[in-house]
Computed example of a mutant assay.
Amino acid sequence: MQPHPAGLPRNALKHRLASGDAPALSLTVRMVRSIEIAGLAKAAGFDALYVDMEHSSLSLESTMQICLASTAIGVTPLVRVANVSQIASVLDGGAEGVIVPHIDSAQAASEAVRAARFAPLGERSIPGALMPQFNYRPVPSSRMAQGLNDSTLVIVMIESDAALAEVDAIAAVPGVDMLFVGTNDLCASMGIVGQLEHPRVRDAYDRCLAACKANGKYLGVGGLNSKPEIAAELAGRGARFISMGTDIAFLLSGAATKINTQREEIARLETRTPKTEISGQKMTKAYWINTYREISDDAAVAEYGKLAGPAIVAGGGRFLARGLPGEVYEAGLRQRTILIEFDSLAQAIATHDGPGYQAALKALGSGAVRDIRIIEAAA
Rank of each mutant, 00 (worst) to 15 (best):
K282W: 00
W288T: 15
G220Q: 09
S89Y: 06
T276D: 15
C208W: 10
A348V: 04
R207S: 02
A377V: 03
D52R: 02
V313E: 14
A286R: 03
L17F: 09
S19P: 02
A72K: 03
R318S: 08
K275W: 08
A88L: 04
Q2R: 15
G175F: 00
L17E: 13
Q146H: 09
T28V: 13
A172M: 12
V139N: 12
P174S: 14
I35G: 07
Y292R: 02
A22Y: 00
Y329G: 13
I66C: 08
R10G: 09
F180N: 07
N225D: 14
D371K: 05
R10F: 05
A38Q: 05
R268K: 04
S19H: 06
P325V: 10
Q262H: 10
D297N: 15
Y292T: 01
W288R: 13
G94D: 08
A256D: 10
G122Q: 09
P5M: 13
L324F: 14
A109D: 02
A88F: 08
F319V: 13
D371C: 02
R237A: 11
R200C: 08
R336Y: 14
A302Y: 10
G220S: 14
S253I: 01
E264F: 15
H102A: 05
E96R: 04
D247F: 02
A163Q: 05
L8G: 12
G216I: 12
G317V: 08
